[in-house]
Design a protein around this nucleic acid. Structure first.
Ligand SMILES: [Mn+2]
Ligand SMILES: [Mn+2]
Ligand SMILES: [Mn+2]
Ligand SMILES: [Mn+2]
Lengths: 146, 146
DNA sequence: TTCGTAATATAGCCAAGGCTTCATATTCTA
DNA sequence: TAGAATATGAAGCCTTGGCTATATTACGAA
């Protein structure tokens, strides 16, 4: 029996539970993050972010996008005027910028360790939301030093 | 205005929607994956996987774990005998093994690029589920060559 | 300036994954 | 072997994030 067949490293139930809990928290932020990033991008590209465009690019039905925007407003990340598109608050803008930088860094890191670009772009869309500040710093350092 | 202030790389709405859709699919598998891995670990460590232990280690209430186990059974990944614990089917075992290898590889990769071990372990719990076969292959190659 | 079309909003459905509370079954110890 | 403690199960609630179907609103072309 090699070391690879042994059970995983010892870890207390509490600690492990904490890791899962943190992963769940990150997940609950993921959709918000994707939407603010998307809204920011649409505004940068087209000068406005319409619900229909958001929905199309997110790959969901438009009422789904509408509900997501409602949540963004509830959380103080966005505003919207009926039939006039969606706008980011300062808080939303700040989040969008941070998320965008993180997204790029994750893609760059993946490519740097040998992941094909297309795969990197696809996987990053999910991975990014679980990359903590510390891990991001490590990625940046790695990309700089390399 | 530097290149960093420009909008993200051009990508068709359809392609981008596909990426988000794939990320959502991965997410819907994440919980199943964590549970089969956990059940496999508990069996390896203690000879059995009781709902109470699963719940404690996942950081959820026991009815939540019970419902998750019900879903595993529905998907043909596990079986259970009342008051006798939970067992993995062949399919469940295969998934658990694959998930465990992937988990370790992700942790190793993160550490290899400079992420502190504790952070790596924590972030990997979420990241792993979005690492595709291709990306995993790249990680393995990187770890070997390094 | 009207009116048809396209965009947006609203309502109501579903499944997943959390939770608490309460009932029941098993196990273990005295 | 009876009874207490523990484990499991069942019921019912909430939020999120999907969906479809059906109003409404706004805009631009005629
Ligand atoms: Mn994303
Ligand atoms: Mn992203
Ligand atoms: Mn995990
Ligand atoms: Mn894991």
């Amino acid at each position: 029996m090699t070391e690879h067949d042994t059970p995983p490293a010892e870890i207390s139930p509490t600690e492990q539970a904490g890791r899962f809990a943190r992963a769940r928290e990150k997940q609950s932020m993921a959709i918000l993050e994707d939407y603010v990033e998307m809204i920011g991008d649409l505004i940068a590209m087209h000068g406005e972010a319409r619900v229909a465009d958001i929905a199309e690019r997110m790959g969901v039905a438009h009422p789904t996008a509408t509900k997501a925007v409602a949540r963004l407003k509830r959380e103080g990340l966005a505003t919207s005027r009926p039939y006039r598109g969606v706008f980011l608050t300062d808080k939303g803008e700040a989040l969008a910028n941070w998320v965008r930088v993180r997204h790029r860094t994750v893609v760059d890191l993946l490519i740097a360790v040998g992941v094909p670009q297309e795969t990197a772009e696809a996987d990053a869309e999910g991975i990014e939301h679980h990359v903590s500040r510390r891990t991001l710093k490590a990625f940046e350092a790695y990309l700089t030093d390399k």
